[in-house]
Amino acid sequence: MTMLRHILLTSIIVAAVYLLLLWVNQDGLLQQPVWAADQGDTAVEQTRPEQQEDLQGSTVETESVATFESITITGVLADIDLNDPVLSRSQVESAWQRFSEHQGLHRAVSWSTGSNIAYAYYHHFSNDFSTARLIIGYQISTTGSGLHTIQSESGNYRLYQLGASAELPDDAWTSAYPDGVILERHRIDSNGSVSASDALVIQ
């Protein structure tokens, strides 16, 4: 009888903690697990979200569809919660912050032309479009603390030109659902200033 009481009490405690956790996380429950990228076995530093200069353009134009080959991107990795716009924005900003602070990554590319293209590759969208993975980096293969490498998908992409502070329209995002990817390209100089941006959304 005592053991039965103990089992009951344990079950009540476990249920209480679990239900409280479900309530706290009600907006973030997943329908499938979000997995780590297979490439790279190094630690990822996670920083608090900070104010980050908006890197996206103010004018968006839709170009025709073109074929793009797969490229190797090495950079910093982040999980993005797409359900909460405020949270996702801070997660993206945090990732850009980590990218900008990763001196090893910037030293791994040549700055002889004065600028390089930084890629922000959104991939691994969950089935319910609640989460995605983002890697921000350069088209290089290198290793280092906090870096991951991924092969972008080859295929037909629709090109969106981005002006000074615009974002991709919602239909561009949802066209990436559920199996798609989005590849942003930002031309940056050695001071970190962005001179041009566009986005490729796989069709």
Binding site: W35, A43, V44, Q46, R48, P49, L77, A78, D81, L87
Partner: peptide, 20 residues
């Protein structure tokens, strides 16, 4: 309190586990 909701990636969890 946003940081309490911030997703901890699998790599970060592994790194934190080893660190601690």
């Amino acid at each position: 309190m946003d940081y309490l909701y911030q997703i901890l990636s699998d790599e970060y969890l592994e790194y934190l586990h080893r660190f601690i």
